[in-house]
Design a protein around this nucleic acid. Sequence first.
RNA 1: AGCGAGGUGGGGUAGUCUGGAGUGCCCGUCGGGCUCAUAACCCGAAGAUCGGAAGUUCAAAUCUUCCCCUCGCUACCA
Length: 495
Amino acid sequence: MADAPGKFYITTAIPYVNAAPHIGHALEFVQADVIARYHKLLGEDVFVTTGADENSLKNVKAAEGLHITTRELVDRNAMLFREFAERIGLSFSVFLRSSDKDIHWNGAQELWRRCMKAGDIYRKSYKGLYCVGCEAFYTEDELDDGICPVHKTKPEPVEEENYFFRLSKYQKELERAIESGEFRIIPVQRKNEILSFIKGGLEDFSISRSVARARGWGVPVPDDPTQIMYVWVDALSVYMTGVGFGRDESSFDKWWPADVHIVGKDIIRFHAVYWPALLLSAGIRLPKALLVHGFLTIEGQKMSKSLGNSVSPMELLKQYSTDELRYYLMRDPPTFDDGDFSENGLKDRINKELLGDLGNLVNRVLTLTEKSGMQSFSGPNELGGKLKLEEIRSRMDGMDIHMALESIMEFVRACNKYVNDKAPWKLDGKELESVLYNLLEGIRSISILLYPYIPATCEQIAQKLGTKITKLDDVAFRPSFTEKLSKGGYLFKKV
RNA sequence: AGCGAGGUGGGGUAGUCUGGAGUGCCCGUCGGGCUCAUAACCCGAAGAUCGGAAGUUCAAAUCUUCCCCUCGCUACCA
């Protein structure tokens, strides 16, 4: 597919900031960044929105548990996430907090007004079993014999009037948009899962809470001081307000629709059903794609608070470099399925692949080149055929960044094999020059291909080669290699 | 319970649609070679009744039927 030079807009989910970042956030941030940087290599203008979901009742409760105000909690934790996003190398354009009145609130309310104008919002009373202790509604099957599992009390039936959204009205349109691929859901298993859910029939859902139930925390419903917007309506609209909706229309027009939203499998319904329905109602274009990634287990076990096994990426980054962690997260777990995080696995990937395969390749080739005393290199292209650029591109286009990385690493191994097969240490003259030419162009290509995954390392490789990280189109064997090399030290050290 | 995905040498996968010797890839184990390299690469070895049973076929990991197991999804509180 020819790259129409243009814009590319990508978002991460905005995490609840009721706790510190864990390794799962790292996975998603890196995935988003790899895709973003890849599109920069394609020459596109890229915008990345990430941020924090701060209007959830969960944050209110977490703050109560810590005996601080909600504002203090979200300020503190949002800062942790922002710092973390920077440390992991997420090249975000905006870090938008949903409690940011100036940037976010008007846009969120504007979405509401448009749905209202379309006649898709109406008032209805909602009945539910409410546990006063939990301050939450329960469904029958969540209770133990009608008793709250936490407080061992019987929840009271409570009736409250809320606003509802006519989701039912959009069933057919959603089906069509998803089936036709106008709104792509990746991978296809998730698409099928959502389609079967939609075909099962959609019911309208509540999109507001009483001020009391929301504890007065959140985005107010326009023209109704008694109600707060349901946190998902507000959180989802961050994807639009991040690029200017309700605030800077020319920016919004430039970037919207989003090219892809990246989310975990737990929140697929909000993104694949509620969100596009709200947009259809408001007369706003649908995002082009939704990428649903899996979850990480920790050393084979589910991440859980009771096990206390959650892994802090900030702690890991004290021992391992950003690139090392990024590489492992993209290399080990498959993009679309669950994977396992283990520190031994991380060490193996660093020692075997980053150091043993990539680092060693760069080092041995630069050593051989230095010893040759040659300055410019050319010869027949013998190695370029091993590089499956089309496969890499099509995998990246399908957002299978794990398999795309596999294709790139295959080429790294092919380069190492080429060194052995040719045994350049036994060669001289034209023969040696030709082998070095192939290897230098190979490594230059690798430095560009791996750049989305391990940017700092690739900058270092480019520096050693005297080249620059340019465009994906420059991944090709040029007729000759004439840059000035500077070997420098090792790229990685054994862990 | 219903719908969906999956069960392939020690681990992870590809192969299944369009049947054809258990074939491939990554990791791990053992032995050997090579040596420019914080080392890679090559050769060889051990290790699987391709979840189970029955059927179709000259031939089944692959097609059919039944069964077992795992994991998702089955709505408003993320």
